[in-house]
Design a protein around this nucleic acid. Structure first.
Lengths: 225, 225
DNA sequence: CGAGACAAACGTTACAAATACGCTTATTAA
DNA sequence: TTAATAAGCGTATTTGTAACGTTTGTCTCG
C-alpha cells in the first residue's frame, strides 16, 4: 500500500484594530472544498527554498497584498480530518497590521478579500474558526506583556489611539486615567512636539514608541489595566 | 523537475526536576546523520491514523518508555537546512515528567537513553539545542502562571519539594517564607494528615494539588517569587 | 464674545500584593 | 542536654492596583 505524503500548509490570522474593534482579513475561497466560504489567507508550502515563516509571509503578500508586517508563529494544527481531502497539517501565524497597511487591502467582496470583526465572524472553512480563537487568545495575553500594541499602530499616535488598541484587543473599556499614568511611567513613549490638529476638540499630543527604552524593561513587563 | 515532498517529524523535550536541578531525557543516535550524537527523542510522522500530538506521545513511549505524561506543543521549526539530508519540518513538544516516571527510563549510556542537566548539555544533533532553549524558556514562564509545577511532582509532596521544583526551573533560589505564605494563601494545596517520616530532621507535612481549587483562580494566576 | 460640550490631561486616596527579613518549633545526632 | 538543621510562623516596608475627582484647552453655537 502506497501512502500519500503528509502535506504542509501555512495559514495566517492577520489582525488590525479599527475604530475600537479588532478585525481580521479573510478571503473567499474560489475552489473546493468549502468553495465560496470565507477562510484564512494561506496555502501549501511547496517551495523548497524558503523557511516556513517565509512561506507564511509570501502567501499573505500574494493573497492580500500585505507585506512587511509583524509575524509570529501560533500553533500547528494536525488533527487527522481537519481537511476532508487529504492529510494536511497547517502551521498557523499571527500577523499584526498597522492602520497604514489597511489601505493596501482592496476590501471588497468582489475582490475576494475582506475585513471581518473578530467578534462577528462568518462561517469559516476547515478548522479556521478554531485557529482564529487561538490567535485571539494569544493577542489578548500578548498585549499585556509585550510591545504588540505598537505593531497595530502607525508610527505616531495619541494616548487615546493606544488605549483604543488595548480596548479593541481586550474587548472591554479601560480606565482612562490609570492607563495614561501607567504608560507614561513606563517610559516607553517618546513625546513628540506635535499634536493632532483636526477634530473639534482639544488637540492631543503625539507619541512614538521607544524600542530602546522598551528593551531596558524587565523580562515580562506588565501592561495590564 | 520532481520535488521531494516535505517531511514532518516530532521531537520532544522531556523534562524532570531532580535534586534541585532541571534535567532532560536525551537519546544517543544510532544512525547517520549525527550518528552517536545525543538528540531529542523524536521521529517521523508516517502514520496516518494519529494526530501530531498522538505521534509525539507514541514516539516518546517507543524511544524512552515514558507514557501518560503532560504534553504540550512548543513550536514548529522549519528552517531550510535544519536537516542536512532533506527538507524536514519538525513539530516540537514539551513533556513534563514526575519523579515516579523517572524509574521507567533505563538511564544508562548503554541503553542509549540518559538524563542530562539542562544547564550542562552535550553536543546535540540538528537544531536540537535551540529547541531545548525554547522549551526551557517556555517552562520558566509557564511555571509562573500555570499548574505546570505539579506535573513535575508526585501526587504527595512537601512544600520544600514544591519550592525545589520552582528553584530548579527558575534556576535561582527563592525566599522560603514568602514562597510558603503565597502558596498557602492561594488555596490550591490540600493539606494531608501525613508527614514525611524519614530524614534526620523535623518531618514535613504532605500536600496534594487541588485541581478544583486551581480552576477557581483567575485567568492567569500569578505564581512568581 | 460668553457658555456649553467634550476630550485631554493631572491628581488623590484606599487597598492589595510583593519584598525583605526576624524569629520560633520539632526532630535527630552526638 | 545541646548543637545542628529544616520546618514553620510572623511583621514592617515598599510597590502596585483600582477607583474616582478635578482642571485645562479647543471647538461650536447662540
Amino acid at each position: 500500500m502506497t501512502v500519500e505524503p503528509i502535506k504542509l500548509t501555512v495559514d495566517t490570522v492577520a489582525l488590525a484594530a479599527q475604530e475600537g474593534q479588532l478585525e481580521i482579513v479573510l478571503i473567499r475561497r474560489k475552489h473546493d472544498p468549502f468553495k465560496t466560504m470565507w477562510a484564512l489567507p494561506g496555502g501549501f508550502l511547496h517551495e523548497h527554498d524558503e523557511s516556513v515563516e517565509q512561506a507564511a509571509a509570501r502567501v499573505l503578500l500574494e493573497e492580500t497584498n500585505v507585506g512587511d508586517v509583524y509575524l509570529e508563529q501560533l500553533f500547528t494544527f494536525g488533527d487527522k480530518h481537519r481537511d476532508p481531502r487529504a492529510r494536511v497539517v497547517t502551521v498557523s501565524y499571527l500577523a499584526l497590521l498597522r492602520q497604514d497597511d489597511l489601505k493596501l487591502i482592496a476590501s471588497s467582496d468582489a475582490s475576494g478579500v475582506a475585513w471581518w470583526p473578530v467578534l462577528d465572524l462568518p462561517k469559516l472553512a476547515f478548522d479556521h474558526k478554531r485557529i482564529i480563537e487561538y490567535a485571539h487568545q494569544r493577542i489578548k495575553y500578548k498585549i499585556e506583556y509585550s510591545a504588540a500594541a505598537f505593531s497595530l499602530l502607525p508610527e505616531k499616535f495619541t494616548l487615546r489611539d493606544l488605549q483604543s488598541v488595548y480596548e479593541a484587543v481586550l474587548g472591554r473599556p479601560v480606565d482612562n486615567r490609570n492607563f495614561r499614568k501607567k504608560f507614561l511611567k513606563l517610559g516607553v513613549l517618546q513625546e513628540l512636539d506635535e499634536t493632532t490638529q483636526q477634530g473639534s476638540f482639544r488637540p492631543a499630543k503625539l507619541y512614538r514608541f521607544d524600542q530602546k527604552e522598551f528593551e531596558q524593561l524587565p523580562d515580562r513587563p506588565v501592561f495590564s489595566f
